[in-house]
C-alpha cells in the first residue's frame, strides 16, 4: 500500500519578486513501512521536498497524497527531525520529549509524559542526561534527543533531513546503528523518508534510494540487503560495491554535464 505519493509536485520560491523554481513536476511514492533515502547534490531540492512532505510549504503545482488522500499542512501523522535546532533551547532534554508527548497526546498526565520521556531517553542511550539543557549536550546527543522526541510522539511517517549531517564520522556510525536499532524496536513499522548526502549512509539504512537532480527524482535503486543489517558484512559484499558505483556515477554524470560533457577517465 502506498503511504506517500507525490504527483507532479512543483515548488516555486518567491522572495519579494525573485522567483526560483526549486522542484519541477516531481513524482515518487513510498510504501507503507518502507525506508526511503533521498540523495542528491547540494541545492537539488531535497529539503524543499521534505518541507512539502512535512506540510511546512504547499506545492505551487501538483499535490501529494498520504494514505491515498490529498494532504495539506502539518499533521500528527508525520514527525520531523532536522539537522539543527530541532530542540527547544529553554527545555531540558526530558522536558523537550515530555512536551512533545503532551502535544501529541493531550490527555497524558505530566507524570506519564515524564515517565515515557525517560523511557525514550534510555532507548537512545541518554539515560541520566534528561536534566541537561540542549546547550549542555553535544551535537550527537541533541540529535538523539530530537529523534527520541519525534518517536515518542508516535508519528506514522518519520521525515529526517540530514539528521547526522553535522556529526563527526565516528558518532555518525553510532547514530546510524542506533537509529536502526530504535526503529526495529518500535511497535509499528514506520514509513521513513531520509535525506542525506552520504551514499554509504543511504545504502546502510534504506530499502530504496531515490537519486534527485534537476529538481526531480532521476533514478531509483533498490537496496538488496535483508534486515537486521550488519555494517561489516554489507560493506564487504559485491552488491554493495556495485550499488555504490551506480550511485556515484549518478553524481558523476551530473558533474560531467556541468563541466561541459567531456569524457573524463577515472
Amino acid at each position: 500500500m502506498k503511504k506517500i505519493e507525490f504527483s507532479n509536485v512543483s515548488l516555486t520560491y518567491d522572495d519579494d519578486g525573485t522567483v526560483y523554481n526549486a522542484l519541477n513536476q516531481m513524482n515518487f511514492s513510498v510504501e507503507q513501512g518502507e525506508f526511503v533515502s533521498i540523495i542528491g547534490s547540494s541545492g537539488c531540492g531535497k529539503s524543499s521536498t521534505l518541507s512539502i512532505l512535512a506540510g511546512l510549504r504547499e506545492p505551487t503545482e501538483g499535490q501529494y497524497l498520504i494514505d491515498g488522500k490529498v494532504s495539506h499542512g502539518t499533521g500528527r501523522n508525520r514527525g520531523v527531525v532536522f539537522q539543527h535546532y530541532s530542540l527547544f533551547p529553554w527545555m531540558r532534554a526530558d522536558e523537550n520529549i515530555a512536551f512533545g508527548i503532551k502535544q501529541a497526546f493531550p490527555e497524558t498526565t505530566d507524570k506519564e509524559a515524564a515517565d515515557i520521556a525517560k523511557e525514550y531517553l534510555e532507548k537512545v542511550g541518554l539515560a541520566g542526561f534528561g536534566k541537561k539543557y540542549p546547550y549542555q549536550l553535544s551535537g550527537g546527543m541533541q540529535q538523539r534527543t530530537a529523534i527520541a522526541r519525534t518517536l515518542a510522539m508516535q508519528p506514522e511517517i518519520l521525515l529526517l533531513d540530514e539528521p547526522f549531517g553535522a556529526i563527526d564520522a565516528r558518532n555518525r556510525i553510532l547514530l546510524q546503528d542506533l537509529l536502526l536499532e530504535v526503529l526495529g524496536k518500535e511497535k509499528e513499522k514506520k514509513t521513513i523518508v531520509f535525506v542525506t548526502h552520504d551514499v554509504d549512509e543511504a545504502i546502510l539504512l534504506s530499502d530504496r534510494i531515490l537519486f534527485m537532480d534537476k529538481k526531480r527524482i532521476l533514478e531509483e535503486f533498490e537496496v538488496p540487503f535483508s534486515r537486521p543489517r550488519k555494517r561489516e558484512e554489507i560493506f564487504q559484499s559485491r552488491d554493495y560495491i556495485n550499488l555504490r558505483q551506480s550511485l556515484l556515477s549518478c553524481f558523476f554524470s551530473g558533474i560531467q554535464e556541468k563541466i561541459g560533457g567531456e569524457e573524463v577517465v577515472l
Partner: peptide
C-alpha cells in the same frame, strides 16, 4: 530562528502552546 519555528510547526503545536512554550 526559522528552523526553530519550523520545528515547532511540525510538532503541530496548539496556539496556546506556541505562545507560552515557544
Amino acid at each position: 530562528d526559522k528552523k526553530l519555528l519550523d520545528s515547532a510547526k511540525t510538532m503541530n503545536l496548539s496556539a496556546p502552546a506556541m505562545f507560552f512554550h515557544v
